[in-house]
Design a protein around this nucleic acid. Sequence first.
DNA 1: TGCAACAGTTGCACACTAGCATGCATAAGC
DNA 2: GCTTATGCATGCTAGTGTGCAACTGTTGCA
Lengths: 159, 159
Amino acid sequence: MDIDRDGSSLDPTSEATVLASRSLLGFVVRSLAPVLEELTLVQFRALVVVDAAAPVRMADLAERVGVHPSTLSRTVDRLEAGGWVRRVPVEGNRREVHVEPTARGTELVADVTHHRRAEIAAALTRLSPPDREAVRRGMELFAAAAGEADPEELLELGL
Amino acid sequence: MDIDRDGSSLDPTSEATVLASRSLLGFVVRSLAPVLEELTLVQFRALVVVDAAAPVRMADLAERVGVHPSTLSRTVDRLEAGGWVRRVPVEGNRREVHVEPTARGTELVADVTHHRRAEIAAALTRLSPPDREAVRRGMELFAAAAGEADPEELLELGL
DNA sequence: TGCAACAGTTGCACACTAGCATGCATAAGC
DNA sequence: GCTTATGCATGCTAGTGTGCAACTGTTGCA
């Protein structure tokens, strides 16, 4: 909330960046809100990993999501019951189980990112071409300076 | 995760913005991670509201956090047990109860935002002054185009 | 004064996350 | 082939979040 309280003590660039980050977070939250009416955050996180890494073994999935295998087993139960993922036998190994997204699961994940990107693009249309260019340059410079976010890390918020 | 999968279909400014947003989210998540070892996300959300709006009535708090008063009552129980907030009687009204952060609660919230701001500032030092200026301008333009995020909305992720 | 509305808590029910210990089937190693 | 390790599922316990309904105490109004 008070992400920029006491902001006056920082340099103007940090200031502007913090402010912009609040706007961006708004986009993220809005894109996530509808999902959270269908799935819990934990479930969506798991679905995102499945969608990105399928086919993935249960144990690997548990590790990537960062939960105990037994917890994951039950989370997959729920995702499977909801029709978001399915367990598939691994050929040549009857001990392991793979998890894959269903079409519905893939679609849900795609919708979220799509919606987010569309909203951002819509906001940018409110700028003149030169201003848009300035945004592009600023964002690129910032991304380069900040470095890629660790995917595992982003996952902690289901992103 | 795949926040920029299929990115090629968008304009370069959206592209850059999405990329930068991933970095920014990384900062947010990192600043939040230590907190989540002490409090649940819901509890932290409530704490943030209390810290920002104290003193606040239970009913108002429930509404702002977006949960049922009975749920909030128990959440406050837990926050109070952990020493993050305290209930204080309202003078002149023995029916209402106010909630206030303890010093510890205020400090926790401040730590999160501080840590986040410091990390962002540190990343920006890796840029030359002119580049930093370009970032400032880009971020300001974006924030202006995107508009202020709705505080209630950001709260959904405890921000 | 008496009654209705209000503020907050508590009992109840249910779902989800979480981890540990256990069990079961399968695979791998000797 | 027998033993051990692995992969997964399940029973158990516990903490949390959630809402509804009921209850207590308080306030406000007629």
